[in-house]
Design a protein around this nucleic acid. Structure first.
Length: 960
DNA sequence: TAACTCACG
DNA sequence: GACGTACGTGAGTTAA
């Protein structure tokens, strides 16, 4: 028979209030108050340490209050209405409590619209029906109603005896059972609810009956047997103050009875089994303890003897969580073995078809496999596939070389002695059914790369999970001081697994001596490649179980994961550029640059490197004696655009020429030269690479080359856009969201005036000007436009003053006027900052989180920067979510309309670029427009319409 | 590698 | 009263 299971449910929210009042006001090295966090951490430590004791926990979860609203507010609007705000130096500790819980690798339950008490009751009851004992870690009197309850009916199948519930007050180190409740309240736990209803509670604003305290209440209940009986008996009581109060307060008592009743049938977001306490990962815990200066605990951890929990296994759970990731395609939840340290010698080099078939069969049976491809080049559009690695569990990984050249590595005679390997075509044919099987989840780190490599080899890998994107959706913006906040595999392995991966350069060398992966000896290649798959598999376990608990599952499942193959396809399509046109432009620019160079040198009276800000500064401010303004970090005078424009106005002819020179050199080197070099020799097109984790707000970013910053603002720059063209017979079509961020600001800040303006199709900057100045002129509209954008970016009077060329006082007046006309905006800003300070992150309308660890930094400069970013992130991020949703739906919508050949090529934050046959523009435009306009639905219903502008033509420029 | 500058939304 | 001159990116150039 199985050991008795014992679930501990920690009432986290209640605990920190008590810890706060009992502990000295400690602060961490950064100055953040952490007294309550320290108390909380020691408590968790102690609980985990009791693991092996009789009556100690086998399972444990922390339950926190997520929102202040629950069914009780619906019954009684004044419920908890008069609660004072928490003390100022407790507020920043709330998010740290969550950090602490994570650092201890403990599951955390926070459900909206449900109070922690109800969640605890529901879990406690459910566990007893499984035959588990339950200890509630709390001292809350409402929860004492549960004490001593044992399940005796509705037991789960196979359970013979139900479990029982008790309570543990860790501060007094006291177990509270039936007797203790009777001693304290004079009634058994079953009748406690009746007593509490009579007593009322001033903190929660439960009315009870005026003048009835604990003593009277328990006497009444004991005398009558129940609340109802006590109330019924009141009319027959002899005349007294109490009788009057009972008669008058009957309704109030009945309401109170309902309010103190615990809800025991809440939905359970995490399975009880997943609360198993198998061990605590030491690395994140050490990180956390160190960060906050909890040195005594850190020492105990390092000493090892005091290490909490039974083992130091890095992965505590023994059960795969499938909710956060793709549903396990087979529906099976695979039990996990313990997670041993990475052992590279355990990996297999697969060199025969027999062994390959064995791995494929095992992967089919496991329903999930981590996959990594090794290639000859970092560019997935030019590289050759050299090998594939698979992992099915910790240290259960292999490398399948497909195109390795020489067993001994490198050398001039590399074809002389190729290693034994399964032929590429044969191996890929064998792997294809696995990689394309709906029943097997393929896990990758940046799997978009592997999708593209394999697609070029005829394999459409699906379904997929991506640990890099999962990490981003959990931890965007987070950085644990000095540890970094990136989502690369090496960094994730260090952070989550405490493991240092082999570096690519250790295997292939660096610089001139670097060899392609296909020339790495198989032994070394296997260690490196199989480790990548192994680590990816482990990371997936770790991240997937965090997703549902930390609210990242929704954005991942609904937005980012579906986008991965879509973006991969866009990258593979690429876009055609007119090489001859770019080359012609390069030449023109070169001539002009040469001419300007001579003129500038003449003006300066000397030859110098114009492209060097240092030399240019010396010429302008020393030789020519112009007045320098701002200086940079290195103490140099700035020579940027704004400085040169000022000099130009002050009548410095050299400044104008330098500006022109700069513009042309920029266009030539960054665009006309670089784009020619970026043309893929095989496809004749340019293939950018989009990063899904590049921008903290959730935007995509584009690299190699960056196609999200192609010039458009100046006439000369637009010539470059003209070089982006469709294939023969096709056109390019561009569809933009019009003013999407302002529209979202109007919705999110609930600004009636702006919403109306958008609804009626009014020019939004004109409307702003009208509101602020009473009339719309060229100047007032321009100023209004500047302010509108300033708002989105988190305004400061100095910033606005600089932009508008006015004094800071005047800018402040304008800001005041703006906030006065649009009070919703100011409220939005205040509210956003409050939430970020409290929770540590901002959220988009679709639930994407961005963390702001520096929001409470001491350095005012740093803090202000963080605040501006925090104001902007929900707006920029929501806009990013919307266009991503549109992108994910676009191809199916086009397919449905019989337009499967329309190709989405580019995304530029609020714009999508398509290529399609000229004759299909009429049919495709409305489909594209509809998908984009409705992209927020059904998850979010916006108060403003999303305006779309569509154009098409023989070049990207003409499409606008 | 850092600093500066500038292209985009 | 000082602080600093808007949010988010990527890339090319110079110079240490």
């Amino acid at each position: 028979m199985a050991e008795k299971q014992h679930l501990y449910l920690v009432d986290g929210s209640a605990y920190i209030f008590r810890a706060y009042h009992r502990l000295p006001p400690l602060t961490n090295p950064e100055g953040t108050p952490v007294g309550a966090v320290y108390g909380y951490s020691t408590m968790l430590w102690k609980l985990a340490d009791d693991l092996d004791k009789a009556d100690g926990p086998t399972h444990l979860a922390v339950v926190l209050d997520k929102s202040s609203h629950s069914f009780r507010n619906d019954l009684y609007p004044d419920y908890k209405a008069h609660r004072p705000d928490p003390p100022e130096d407790l507020v920043p500790q709330f998010p740290l409590i969550r950090d602490a819980t994570r650092a201890f690798s403990l599951p955390m339950i926070e459900e909206p619209d449900v109070e922690a008490d109800d969640m605890i009751a529901s879990y406690a009851i459910a566990a007893t029906k499984k035959g588990w004992d339950v200890t509630i870690v709390s001292s809350d009197k409402d929860l004492m109603q549960l004490i001593g309850q044992c399940a005796d009916e509705d037991l789960e199948p196979g359970v013979e005896t139900g479990g029982c519930i008790d309570m543990l007050d860790t501060m007094k180190d006291a177990r509270i059972g039936r007797e203790e409740v009777e001693e304290k309240f004079g009634v058994p736990p079953e009748l406690l609810g009746d007593v509490l209803a009579l007593m009322g509670d001033s903190v929660d604003n439960i009315p009870g009956i005026y003048g009835v305290g604990p003593k009277t209440a328990s006497k009444l209940i004991n005398d009558n047997g129940s609340l109802a009986a006590a109330l019924d008996a009141a009319p027959d009581m002899k005349k007294s103050k109490l009788k009057e109060r009972l008669l008058e307060g009957r309704e109030s008592a009945e309401l109170s009875r309902v309010l103190v009743e615990l809800k025991k049938d809440c939905g359970l977001p995490i399975a009880l089994e997943d609360m198993k306490l198998d061990g605590i990962a030491p690395e994140p815990l050490a990180e956390f303890l160190e960060l906050h200066g909890f040195n005594s605990l850190l020492k105990r951890l390092e000493a090892g003897s005091g290490s909490p929990g039974r083992t130091t296994n890095l992965e505590g759970r023994n059960r795969a969580d499938t909710e956060g990731a793709a549903a396990s395609p087979g529906g099976n939840v695979q039990p996990l073995p313990d997670m041993p340290d990475v052992d590279r010698s355990a990996y297999e080099t697969v060199q025969t078809m027999e062994r390959l078939q064995e791995w494929i069969a095992r992967a089919q049976a496991a329903h999930r496999v981590a996959v990594d491809t090794e290639t000859s080049d970092l560019d997935c559009m030019v590289c050759d596939l050299v090998g594939i690695s698979l992992a099915l569990g910790p240290n259960d990984a292999c490398y399948i070389p497909l195109a390795h050249l020489n067993e001994d590595g490198g050398g001039s005679d590399m074809f002389a002695n190729p290693p034994q390997q399964v032929g590429k075509a044969q191996a890929l044919a064998a792997l294809k059914p696995l990689l394309e099987s709906d029943a097997v989840l393929k896990i990758g780190q940046n799997i978009k790369y592997d999708i593209n490599v394999l697609a070029r080899n005829g394999i459409d890998i699906a379904p997929i999970d991506d640990t890099m994107v999962m990490s981003f959706d959990l931890d965007a913006g987070r950085s644990l001081d000095g540890i970094g906040g990136g989502h690369g595999m090496d960094e994730l392995a260090e952070r989550h697994l405490g493991h240092t991966c082999l570096k690519y350069k250790d295997v292939c060398g660096t610089g001139k001596k670097a060899i392609p992966f296909g020339e790495v000896p198989l032994g070394k290649a296997t260690e490196y490649a199989a480790e990548d798959a192994d680590v990816t598999w482990r990371l997936h376990m770790h991240l997937a179980r965090r997703m549902p608990m930390e609210g990242a599952a929704r954005i991942y499942q609904r937005v980012d994961r579906p986008l991965i193959p879509v973006v991969a396809a866009m990258e593979r399509h690429g876009i055609k550029v007119d090489r001859a046109e770019l080359s012609r432009l390069s030449e023109t620019f070169a001539e002009e640059i040469g001419r300007l160079e001579k003129e500038i040198h003449a003006e300066a009276g000397q030859e110098f490197t114009i492209g060097s800000p240092k030399q240019l500064g010396e010429v302008l401010f020393d030789t020519l004696g112009y007045k320098g303004g701002k200086k940079g970090k290195s103490g140099q005078h700035s020579t940027d655009q704004s400085v040169l424009e000022r000099l130009d106005k002050e009548g410095a002819p050299i400044a104008t020429k330098v500006l022109e020179y700069r513009q042309l050199s920029k266009l030539k080197s960054t665009y006309t030269d670089a784009l020619q070099a970026a043309i893929n020799e095989n496809t004749g097109r340019v293939h950018t690479s989009y990063s899904l984790v590049g921008a903290q707000t959730g935007r995509l970013s584009s690299t190699d080359p960056n196609l999200q910053n192609i010039p458009i603002r100046t006439e000369i720059g637009r010539q470059i856009r003209k070089a982006f063209v469709p294939d023969e017979g096709n056109v390019l079509l561009a569809a933009d969201y019009s003013q999407i961020e302002l529209r979202l600001a109007a919705h999110m800040a609930d600004v009636e005036t702006l919403k109306e303006a958008f609804a009626s199709g009014e020019d939004i900057h004109s409307r702003t000007a009208k509101e602020m100045y009473g009339e719309v002129t060229r100047d007032s509209r321009a100023a209004a436009k500047t302010i509108n954008f300033a708002i989105l970016y988190g305004i400061s009077r100095w910033g606005l003053a600089g932009r508008l060329g006015v004094e800071a006082d005047e800018a402040q007046d304008m800001i005041d006027t703006y906030f006065q006309r649009f009070p919703g905006i100011q409220k939005y800003i205040v509210r956003t900052l409050e939430t970020v300070r409290e929770k540590g992150y901002s959220e988009t309308l679709f639930g994407r989180k961005t963390w702001f660890p520096r929001i409470s930094a001491k350095n005012p400069n740093e803090r202000a920067g963080s605040e501006r970013a925090a104001i902007n992130a929900p707006i920029q991020g929501t806009s990013a979510d919307i266009i991503k949703r549109a992108m994910a739906r676009m191809n199916p919508a086009l397919d449905d309309a019989g337009l499967g050949h329309v190709r989405m090529l580019l995304q530029v934050h609020d714009e999508l670029v398509f290529e399609l046959p000229k004759g299909d523009v009429e049919a495709a435009s409305p489909v594209i427009e509809r998908v984009m306009a409705e992209a927020a639905l059904p998850a979010v219903e916006l108060d403003v319409p999303l305006g779309i502008e569509i154009g098409h033509g023989p070049s990207w420029d003409d499409a606008h």
